[in-house]
Amino acid sequence: MSRARFVLAELATGLRRNVSMTVAVIIVTFVSLTFVAAAALTQMQIGNLKDDWYDKVEVSIFLCPSDSSVPTCADGEVTAAQRDEILAVLNSDSVAPYIDTVYTESKQEAYDALQEQMAGTVWAESVTVDLMQMSFRVKLKDPEQYQVVADAVAGRPGVDSVRDQRQILEPLFVILQRATLLSAGLAAVMIIAAVLLITTTIRLSALSRRRETGIMRLVGASNLFIQLPFMIEGALAATVGSLLALGALYFGVRYLIEDWLANSLQWANLVTTDDVLAIAPWLVLIAIALAAFSSAVALSRYTRV
């Protein structure tokens, strides 16, 4: 009991003596952890979008129609033999493991789909079943493995073209990935600043209480007991910083994304404040780890027995 009271009293003295430095530590951890969390949320957003869309996208292998200028279609419309050969490739040992299902869309089905989509337009009225293309709709186990299928069938006789629907989404993912990278880069720089600042603050605090720590060592206080007030000082400042970061993110997501962006982008599954709460413990943990690491570095030199 008296031990705890003593540590708390030492802690209060330390905090009072370095108010400005403590505030600086809080701000730097706040900013750095905001970037860490922003990177994490962007990654979660990418994950959400992939989950939503990747199981809807498929690779379409369009087979030669009666008139096509592509060299592999020089022999005219795809024959039954060519079709079987392409299916055999898709079922071969080197390609089959990547494929979930293959659906054959006949010309009639393609025509029906077009009629439904374009009903009432001049397009729908001018095409005939015969003008449509037959195609294989391949659903992949991992949508990222598009290239395996494309390489296997592209250029084979009877194949007109291979299209990956995922490519339509790709630019969006590239933007989000770069945003993550930027955020993570800024976070890394800010974390270095935070570590240096926490180290300096603790060192300053330890230096200003050299006399006390010197006597503590002489009368045989344990290392932990001498170092604890300094460690708690750093950890406390870092934790406050992480809580501020969480608060900023919570309200940012709440007002910018949930209240505003979600209304205009209803097709997308956006990150929510629940996601912020999900990463909250990790953020606080990172803050405490930062402080622990910094104090270990700072104190190893100044309060050694």
């Binding site: 008296s2 003593f6 006597i215 503590m216 009368v219 045989g220």
Partner: peptide
Amino acid sequence: AFALQVLGKPRHHI
């Protein structure tokens, strides 16, 4: 008292 406090000695002892 400091010398006893940092060893965690109880208050009544101090």
